[in-house]
Design a binder for these strands. Structure first.
Length: 288
DNA sequence: GCTCAGGTGGTTC
DNA sequence: GAACCACCTGAG
């Protein structure tokens, strides 16, 4: 069991920031997270509402409030979850970089100050974001769960509940397009089939991908079936941790047109544009 | 019935 | 290279 101060760290906010589709609230203060074949139970203690909200207090991120309990060993935390949640980096430093004259971004960051850019599995993000196109979040979660139940491995949590690991590329590459259509993946079935085969067959090397610079990785990802610029950026940000990746979907596009008619200041936010994208996305999602 | 939901790929000019 | 349009599915 590991306890973490909620200073720029909020599981509820991360849950709703749309970067992770296998993190769910099971009760008011308890969450369950699946990552690859791992399972983690999480409890929020103290005042989750206050740390999650912070709308009325623009400097909320400077005041840690409450704590988060991870039900894992100290070793699992040190070797995996600490990096997974990007807890070695100070997010208040990112927030401090924001232009004080930019009221919109300042407000968005204060509102979502507990968000972190997770370091998720590359293969998992590839499949997840291919499924995300023209789809809504509850349905994406459902499709991923279904894929796990059909092609993943059955496991048991410490307290005896059943869960399924994320399907491996080798396993998923054996599925036919028809099988996937039966699971209601729709036209994305063909993309998943082709992409799984390309990765399982070694046509795209995920280890090599991790060594690439942002623009190179983005181009490489777009060779996969069903991956365009937006999805490639999501994978670059949420798996490869390229902080210059700035996924532009329909919502972000509208926000940029409205609040940044002369263009978003990417130069200023070199090295943390992706964090800003998340603050904007979450703010827009919750407050539009 | 129609539109929309975190887009992509193919065709056309 | 910009402007269409088809594409599965389920909810409102």
């Amino acid at each position: 069991m590991v306890t973490i101060e909620n200073n720029c760290f909020s599981i509820p906010q991360i849950c709703e920031s749309g970067q992770c589709f296998r993190l769910d609230a099971v009760s008011e203060d308890t969450y369950e997270l699946l990552a690859g074949s791992r399972y983690l139970r999480i409890k929020i203690r103290g005042n989750p509402e206050e740390t999650a909200g912070g709308e009325e207090n623009a400097s909320a991120h400077t005041h840690a409030c409450g704590e988060t309990i991870l039900y894992c060993t100290q070793e699992e935390y040190e070797t995996f979850w600490k990096e997974y949640f990007d807890l070695t980096v100070s997010y208040s430093d990112y927030i401090d970089q924001i232009d004080r004259d930019d009221d919109y971004l300042t407000g968005a960051a204060a509102f979502g100050s507990g968000i972190r850019i997770l370091r998720q599995d590359t293969w998992e993000m590839i499949i997840t974001f291919i499924l995300s196109q023209q789809n809504n979040i509850p349905r994406i979660k459902g499709l991923i769960r279904t894929l796990g139940e059909r092609y993943g491995e059955r496991r048991e949590t410490p307290d005896g509940r059943i869960y399924y690991t994320f399907p491996r590329a080798e396993k998923l590459s054996q599925a036919t397009e028809e099988e996937l259509r039966e699971l209601k993946l729709g036209y994305r079935s063909k993309y998943i089939c082709q992409t799984a085969k390309m990765i399982a067959g070694g046509e795209i090397d995920l280890d090599a991908l991790k060594e690439m610079e942002y623009t190179e990785a983005r181009t490489e990802l777009m060779r996969l079936s069903g991956i365009g610029g937006k999805v490639a950026d999501c994978i670059c940000l949420f798996a490869l941790h390229h902080m210059d990746a700035f996924p532009v979907d329909t919502h972000i596009k509208k926000v940029l047109e409205r609040h940044y008619p002369d263009g978003f200041p990417f130069e200023r936010y070199k090295g943390c544009a992706g964090v800003m994208q998340q603050y904007i996305f979450y703010y827009d999602l919750k407050c539009r």
